[in-house]
Amino acid sequence: MTGHHFPSLSYVEPDYPVFLPVLQPDSSRRRAEAALRVLVVDDDMRIADTIAEVLQQAGFEAQAAYTGDSALQAAASFRPDCLLSDVLMPSMNGVELAVTFREQHPTARIVLISGQVGISEIIEDAERRGLHFQLLAKPVHPRILIEELRKPSER
């Protein structure tokens, strides 16, 4: 190395900030074309957080909330394209949340997710009132969840 000389171009610190593009595999490309905003709601924080992270890695813009109330608050500024909510939650359940959410965000898609048998009554009750919600069974594999959310809304 000793006898070798690099071209005599000394490095000068630029006096303006340089922003180099950060290439994030897969996600940034998708964000450019779709960047669907998904609001993930589950009273089990670990579930809400991990789903949000899975979705972020897949190129969605995702935010987590842990109660129906905080979800409605977050939705006001986040303006999600899709609400992905657990059904059985204390104080405000997923269907109640969905009903209020739909009034405030009539074009957004709503997907409910539940691991509980017997919630079909809640869903059927909602359908009788003319509300149609898509329902996924917990545990749902992240791959399937991503595919499902990338599909155009059923409505």
Partner: peptide, 9 residues
């Protein structure tokens, strides 16, 4: 099903 969901994620 709830812990399974987190575990899977």
């Amino acid at each position: 099903n709830n812990p399974l969901e987190s575990l899977m994620n």
